[in-house]
Design a protein around this nucleic acid. Structure first.
Lengths: 125, 125
DNA sequence: AAGGTCGGTATCCAGCTGGATACCAAGACC
DNA sequence: GGTCTTGGTATCCAGCTGGATACCGACCTT
C-alpha cells in the first residue's frame, strides 16, 4: 500500500526554487513541507529525510503552524506501533494551485530574478 | 495628466486581505506597496497616505528591497522641484498575476481560513 | 525671516525567528 | 538488559524585523 516512491533524499539538492522565491508561504519551511505532502500522507521521520537541514524543532514548529491554520492534518495511529501521519487537508491541497502558479512564474522569470539581485541570494528581502 | 484617482486614504480601512494572507511577498508591506503602484507611478508622499500606519523608515526599507530585487524602479526628477517617483518594472508587473491568483484563492477560502485559525489573526504563522 | 512640504536618515530597542545542542519516554528488537 | 527507532521537547542564544521617535537639508511659500 505504501508503494508510493519515497521522498527524495534531499530537497535542497534539486533545483528547488522555493527557498529563493520572493514569495513566502507560512514560515520558512512551510512550502517545502507542503510539497512533500503533495502525493500523500507522510510520517514525521519520512519528512525529516528530504528536509535533513531542518532541525526537528523547526520541522515540528512548521507542521504545528500548518496544522493550526488548517492546511495539514495530524493523525496518530497506535495500530501495531506508534505512527504519526501528516496529510494535506482539502484547504491545503487547494492552496497548492496558487503556490504552483507562483513557482511557475518564478521559473519563467528566473534569469531576471537572478540578474536583479546582483549576486545576493536573499529569499525575501 | 495626473488625472488618475488618488490612492485611497487608508488601505487598512478596506477589507484588504493581504496582511491576513498566509502568503507573503517580500517584506511585511511589499505586497501593499505593489498594489498601490498598480495603476501608475506614485511619489513617496503619495504612498505614505494609504500606508499611514507604516513608518517612513519601514516604507523606505520596503521600497529599497523591491528596487533591489527589480520589482520597482525609483526615478528622481529635479524638474521644477524635487520629485521622486516609484513605478512597477515589467518584472514587478508580471508578478502581480500570481499575487492576484493568491489573493483570489484567499478570497474564495476566506471562511475556511478564518475558521481554521480559531480567532487568532496571525498573518504568517 | 518663518514655516511648510518633500524625501528621507539616525538611533534605539523589544520581540520574534530560527539554529544548535541536548535530552526524553514508549515501544520494538536483539 | 541494552540498544534502536519514533516523535518529538527543553534550553539557550545570535541575529533579524520592524516599531517609535527624533531629526535633517533643500526647496517653496508667505
Amino acid at each position: 500500500m505504501t508503494q508510493r516512491p519515497p521522498l527524495p533524499p534531499d530537497l535542497f539538492d534539486e533545483l528547488c526554487p522555493s527557498p529563493l522565491l520572493p514569495f513566502r508561504f507560512g514560515d520558512k519551511w512551510a512550502s517545502m513541507v507542503l510539497r512533500c505532502l503533495d502525493d500523500g500522507p507522510r510520517r514525521y521521520s519520512e519528512l525529516r529525510v528530504p528536509l535533513s537541514r531542518v532541525t526537528p524543532k523547526a520541522l515540528t514548529q512548521s507542521l504545528r503552524g500548518l496544522e493550526r491554520n488548517g492546511f495539514v492534518s495530524r493523525t496518530v495511529h497506535a495500530d501495531p506501533k506508534l505512527r504519526v501521519e501528516y496529510a494535506l487537508t482539502p484547504l491545503g491541497r487547494s492552496m497548492l494551485e496558487p503556490l504552483a502558479a507562483a513557482c511557475q512564474w518564478a521559473a519563467e522569470h528566473w534569469d531576471e530574478l537572478l540578474d536583479a539581485r546582483e549576486g545576493g541570494i536573499s529569499s525575501i528581502g
